[in-house]
Design a protein around this nucleic acid. Structure first.
Lengths: 141, 141
DNA sequence: GTGTCTGCAAACGATTTGCAAATTA
DNA sequence: TAATTTGCAAATCGTTTGCAGACAC
């Protein structure tokens, strides 16, 4: 089902729908929780249609250029990617490393001096997720 | 003047005030507009007290750990650093690469589900600065 | 004097790239 | 068949690290 959806999306964007590109986009559609390159590569390694890491990199860059994905850099060594293009921010737990989507109000642009043209905005909050926060307070008590 | 200020700050933070650390912190205090490692290194290369790039890296990491600086990743290959620890966001011009400080209202936390503990937040807007935006519209007309 | 910091060069790790073989239309 | 894409391995580049000598206290 996602296979066909992925192929359809690629055709709409006028991106040649190769086996590898369909598989990678399908993976992103099924795993919207911000995978990294390594994660995509590992996940697809055991499939019959083997995909090299260079292809994962090139494909993800291509997708980003066409607006199918957004890079999400939380300060780790590598980058995460996000297929969800709706406006939302991210919460990054500095303890367990998990990333959550969070809502935020559209107020950034109203504070911008005139003349600036907005193309994209990112809101990133770092801290402790509920689980890690409670672990932490237990340790202290 | 900044020399003494830098030394003072280091002592307050209980960081051993070496010649290199004072020089690097002094540079950041004089250049708050988000320098990168390379920029700091190049700027201090002609000074009598030569500073290796490894030391710039180690020192900046040390400063960050002690809360003197914040890393600012706008998606370029390398990182920028910001000594201004007051709450503010950044505007990154994707055309000329310049970075501006911008204000934003504190509304992120109120949208956060309960249990999340905030340590830091970053607001990054990408787009065209007034200069590049007008250049761009001229080209189109 | 003793422990910490610096500089150098080598190591590292994520990402990109050149090119021949494979795949797509 | 012609043009594009893939896979591999090598290259790239920002950053980290090991270690001997230099410096701070």
């Amino acid at each position: 089902m996602n296979q066909q959806e992925a192929e359809q999306i690629l055709k709409e964007k006028h991106i040649q729908a190769t086996r590898q590109r369909i598989t990678i986009l399908e993976y992103f559609l099924e795993h919207k929780v911000h995978p990294g390159i390594e994660e995509v590569y590992e996940a697809l390694a055991d499939r019959p249609e083997k995909i090299s890491k260079a292809t994962v990199y090139n494909t993800v860059n291509l997708f980003e250029k066409h607006g199918l994905l957004k890079a999400l850099d939380v300060g780790e060594a590598y980058c995460h990617y996000d297929v969800d293009m709706d406006r939302h921010g991210h919460f990054h737990c500095v303890h367990c490393g998990k990333i959550w989507n969070i809502p935020y109000d559209p107020e950034v642009e109203k504070n911008l001096p005139p003349g600036f043209e907005v193309l994209d905005e990112q809101v990133l909050v770092k801290g402790l997720c509920p689980e890690c926060a409670s672990e932490n307070s237990e340790r202290l008590s």
